[in-house]
Structure formats: structure tokens, C-alpha cells
């Protein structure tokens, strides 16, 4: 059947029972079927990283996964970072260090950095640069993103 399949996407702890074609990417399902438009779609072929979300414990390009593959797996998106009015340390650090200008790439960077810092709180600077090279930002020149993530990493360790 190329017809639609019923799946449940668990996004930031909330279940979304949806019906999608097998070809529906996770990025499109999160935005179009679940209405969570914080996840951005840039290139749709895995190069830019704007659509990065956390599936299970892994940061992934949601344009390179099919929604049906994430059926029942906990997914985290940028909407789940803040706790009420309290921003996540990474979100605050991006503001404090001017880690964004237009903001299009920011949700992807935040989810990438969140997943990696949770897994490796003591990540070396070399490894951190390798990780942050994963996503494209055309505004900041990366320096302020790097500063922001370093500052948040220090705060999250404290």
C-alpha cells in the first residue's frame, strides 16, 4: 500500500495520532501534520541541518527520516526546550552571545547542541567544533554560535 498509514508521533511528551503516506518525511509530519512549526526545513536533502530534531537520544536530520520510522519513538523539538517562561540554558546563551541573526537555523543548532551536550557534557573543544560544523548558518559566521554553546556547556556542567 502506498496509501496512508496510522502512526503516533510523540513530540515533547505529547502524542499526535496522525495518518501519513510512507514517503512523508519526519520534518514534514512534525510541521504539517502536528503543527509544530519550530522545526525548520531548509534544503530537504540533509545538507543544512535546519530540521535537526532529537529522536530517541540522537540528533537527526528529520528530512532524511520518514515519519513512519519514528512511530512511537520520543521526539524532541525546539518547542520542548523552554520550561514555561524559563528558557533552556542554550536558548539564553544564544541570546546573550548573539548566536542568531535571522534565526532560521537556530532551532536546528539548539537541538543539535542539546543532544550532544546531554550525551557528552565534558565534550572537548575540538569535538564541539566538529559537531557545530554539521549545520549551516549564513548570518553569524559561527563564532557567536560557538561562544554561546561553550557558555551553555559550562553552565549545564555547573
Amino acid at each position: 500500500m502506498t496509501g496512508k498509514v496510522a502512526i503516533t508521533l510523540n513530540i515533547n511528551g505529547r502524542d499526535h495520532a496522525i495518518s501519513v503516506e510512507p514517503r512523508r518525511t519526519l520534518a514534514d509530519a512534525i510541521r504539517e501534520n502536528c503543527g509544530q512549526t519550530g522545526t525548520h526545513i531548509g534544503c530537504e536533502h540533509g545538507v543544512c541541518g535546519a530540521c535537526t530534531v532529537i529522536v530517541g537520544d540522537d540528533p537527526v536530520r528529520s528530512c532524511l527520516m520518514f515519519a513512519a520510522q519514528a512511530d512511537g519513538v520520543p521526539i524532541r523539538t525546539v518547542e520542548g526546550l523552554a520550561k514555561g517562561d524559563t528558557l533552556h540554558p542554550l536558548q539564553r546563551a544564544f541570546m546573550d552571545h548573539h548566536g542568531l541573526q535571522c534565526g532560521f537555523c537556530t532551532p536546528g543548532f539548539l537541538m543539535l547542541a542539546t543532544a550532544v551536550l546531554e550525551r557528552e557534557p565534558n565534550i572537548t573543544d575540538d569535538d564541539l567544533l566538529d559537531v557545530l560544523a554539521s549545520n549551516l548558518c549564513r548570518c553569524t559566521g559561527y563564532q557567536n554560535i560557538i561562544k554561546a554553546v561553550r557558555a551553555a556547556a559550562a553552565e549545564m556542567r555547573a
Binding site: 540533509g46 541541518g49 535537526t52 540522537d58 532524511l64 543539535l112 566538529d130 560544523a133 554539521s134
Partner: peptide, 12 residues
Amino acid sequence: VRHIAHYPIRTR
């Protein structure tokens, strides 16, 4: 492995 694409590609 560090030379293969990028971290979020390597997780999949």
C-alpha cells in the same frame, strides 16, 4: 569516522 559527513548523519 570523524571524516564521514556530520554528527547527525552519523547517528543514522
